[in-house]
Each structure stands twice: as C-alpha cells, then as structure tokens.
Simulated scan of single mutants.
Amino acid sequence: MSDQTRNLPALSKQVTELVLAGSLGHAEQAFADAADQYGDLAVVEVLSSIPPQVTALHMAGFDGGKMSLATLLVPPKAWADSLAFIAATWPDDQIEDDPERIAESLFAHVHGVVFATDDEERRNELLAAASAPDHGATMFAILFSMAPKEILEVAGEIIAKGPYLTGQTSSDNDVVPLAIALAQASEDGWDRALFELFPEFRHSADLADAEFNDDPDEEQNFLQRSTKELLYRLRKQVPSTRVVKTSRRSVGTGIFS
C-alpha cells in the first residue's frame, strides 16, 4: 500500500474537520501540502471522498477572485453534489433583503469553477454534471434571472443557429458566455434551466419568440420567476443530512441537522 493510499483517509478527515471549524485557509493549505507531496490526483481523490456539504462550505469561501486548488481540481460529480448544499451557506435574512447580492456571489462561484482553466472538455463535464439534477436547474435559473432579456436573446440565437451557435450576441452581460457554454455542454441542462426561469414555456422555440418588456414598472406578458423566488426554491432543495455540529451558525440555522 502506497503512502498516498494510506494517508488519504486521514487527509479527508483533516480537511472535513478544518472546514467545519471554519478554517478554510488551513484546509486549503492541507490540499496544497498534499498536492506537493503526492500530486494533484491526491486532492482530486479527497474532494471525491469528503461529504458534499463539506465541499460546499469550503468552496463557498472562494469566489472568482480567490483561486483555490478545490476550484481547479474538484471532480465534476463532486462539485455537482456540493451545489445541492450551497444554499445552506447563505445567511438566513439575505435571501429576503438582498437576493441580487447572493445571485452575484453564486455567479462568481460557478463562473470561477467553470472557467478556472482553458480545458474545454473539463468545462463541458462540469456544466453537464452541475445542470443534471433538479437543484442544478434551479441554480442556473438563479444566474439567468439576473439577465432575463439577454437569456431570451440567447434562446433565440440557439433556435436560429443550433449547433452553429458562435457565442456572439448583442449583449456583453457576463451571464451570456456562461449560458452559451451551458447550452453547448448540455442541451437538456440548458432547457431545464430555461424552463425553471420561465415556467409557462415548454418549447424553446416559443420562448425564443417571447418579447421582453424593458419597462420595470410593467409586468411581463409571460411568467418569469424572480431571483428571490428561485433562491427560496433552491433553499428548499437542500438535502437533509447530519454533520458534526459546529459553532459556525452563520451558514444557516440548523440547515444541516
């Protein structure tokens, strides 16, 4: 048995305890030490073995401006599983008081992981895995709710150009490249996120013909879920599980119990 094989369970336990104690910097250092000693695959193995709610807590501490080994190396399935718990890391009152800030933070997280490297194959695997479960469709709908007009435009481009979609639209909104990347990585994931945001529509072609009203004081002529509503929907999708109790109550009162 190699040293790496013997030490991985201990490293997984160490990282889990550090994250639950709120010591994200020390957990990241443990990853760095393991990578130096055993290689990146050791970090990949640990990220595959620790509970997804622990991965969610760890990665929630790193947005697009804070690179981490977990961001670079998290396996697609492990990341997708962790996203089921990310809503539990939000302060209880922030969904109500500042939903846009949470959505922007979530976007920074997703964008940071998906575009951490130039590896297109990894990007497609991450997007396909993340968008496959129900919580993934809700999560992407939250991101798209920040730019609904632009998302409708992308839907129209996809219907018009199909596999020949170039990624060029009239919008420079940061959400657009992520939306196009999702559509290219997973047609099913794109459709499910789209219909989570616009629940009245069941056909992309119909949605592409919908006209977005630019007047914020007037209601849209079709149903669109708000960012706040989608955040609450994702919060309700957090699985119930038991982890070691910690003093870090700010991540959501009793959400993991």
Rank of each mutant, 00 (worst) to 15 (best):
K245M: 09
V251G: 00
E45Q: 14
E187A: 13
A183V: 08
A132W: 09
V244R: 12
E120R: 09
G112A: 09
H26D: 15
N213M: 10
Y164C: 07
N173P: 01
E211H: 10
A88D: 05
I50A: 01
A132N: 11
R6L: 13
H58S: 07
E45F: 01
G136Q: 07
S2T: 12
N7S: 13
L194S: 13
R249G: 04
S2Q: 08
D40T: 12
D118I: 02
A210Y: 13
S250A: 09
E125S: 14
D214P: 14
V238A: 03
A208F: 08
A27E: 00
A147K: 10
D172G: 01
L72I: 10
Q37D: 13
E125K: 15
Q14C: 04
K149D: 10
F195A: 01
F198S: 03
E100T: 10
F31A: 07
A147V: 07
V114M: 04
T246E: 03
V54S: 01
D93G: 02
S131W: 01
A56D: 06
H135W: 08
I159D: 06
D134Y: 00
F212M: 06
T71N: 14
A205V: 11
A60T: 12
D174V: 15
G25V: 06
D172R: 14
G39R: 06
A160K: 14
V176C: 07
T5I: 10
G189P: 06
F107M: 11
L41D: 15
T253K: 06
S170M: 09
V154E: 05
M59D: 10
L83I: 04
P163E: 15
Q220K: 11
Q224H: 08
G136F: 09
S250L: 08
D93M: 08
A87G: 05
Q4F: 03
M1D: 11
A116G: 14
R101G: 11
L57P: 04
A132E: 12
Y38K: 04
L47S: 01
T169Q: 05
S49C: 02
R123T: 02
D119R: 11
D33P: 13
T169M: 08
R123W: 03
F256H: 11
L24N: 12
D3S: 12
G61V: 00
A56R: 01
R123P: 00
L41V: 12
A160M: 10
K228A: 07
L73D: 03
F107I: 04
E17A: 12
S68M: 08
D36H: 14
A141H: 02
K236H: 06
R248P: 00
H26T: 11
T16Y: 00
D81F: 00
F31G: 06
A30I: 07
R225S: 01
K77P: 04
A87C: 06
A42R: 04
I50G: 01
G61C: 02
S171G: 03
G136I: 10
N221H: 14
M139H: 12
E211Q: 15
E153Y: 08
L182K: 09
N213S: 07
A129E: 11
D188I: 15
